[in-house]
Amino acid sequence: MAYLRALDESATLRHHFRHADEEGGLWYIEAVPDRGELIVIKQAELTSAGQVHRYSCEHLEDEHGGLTDQAIDPEQDPLEAISAEEFLRVWTR
């Protein structure tokens, strides 16, 4: 948790992505570079029912899911780059 908080507080470059899952939900991701990898520091799921579940160093997991502990690779993972504004619209919803 301290590692994620430090990344969130010190990051100057942030990347934002969206990913659709098999159940019709959309995942919104904020990631920062660290040691050659993109580390997810915030993640929000917008379910097909319209619910939003948010995960970060403040709230790592709950009964619906949790913040990924894996680095992401936009070249390999099925991610769509989005704007910071789009991410924030979902995150603050």
Rank of each mutant, 00 (worst) to 15 (best):
M1F: 05
M1R: 10
L4E: 01
L4K: 06
L4D: 05
R5W: 02
L7I: 03
D8I: 05
E9P: 01
E9D: 09
S10H: 09
S10R: 10
A11E: 06
T12G: 14
L13K: 14
R14H: 10
R14D: 05
F17V: 01
F17E: 01
F17C: 04
R18S: 11
A20I: 04
A20P: 06
A20Y: 01
E22R: 09
L26D: 15
E30D: 05
E30V: 04
E30P: 01
A31T: 02
V32Y: 03
P33L: 08
P33T: 11
P33K: 02
P33H: 09
R35D: 14
R35F: 05
G36L: 11
G36A: 11
E37F: 14
E37M: 12
L38A: 04
I39K: 04
I39Y: 02
V40T: 10
V40C: 08
I41A: 09
Q43E: 15
Q43F: 12
A44K: 11
A44V: 09
E45Y: 15
L46C: 12
T47K: 14
A49R: 15
G50A: 12
Q51P: 00
Q51T: 07
Q51W: 15
R54E: 15
Y55W: 12
S56E: 05
S56N: 06
L60C: 05
L60G: 00
E61K: 09
D62N: 13
D62R: 06
E63G: 00
H64R: 14
G65V: 09
G65S: 08
G66T: 05
G66V: 12
T68Q: 07
D69F: 09
D69S: 12
D69V: 02
Q70Y: 06
A71H: 13
I72S: 00
I72N: 02
Q76A: 10
Q76W: 00
D77A: 02
L79A: 02
E80N: 07
A81D: 03
A81G: 05
I82L: 00
S83R: 03
S83I: 07
A84M: 06
E86M: 09
E86T: 11
E86A: 10
E86C: 04
L88V: 08
L88P: 07
R89S: 12
R89C: 11
V90T: 06
W91D: 06
R93A: 15
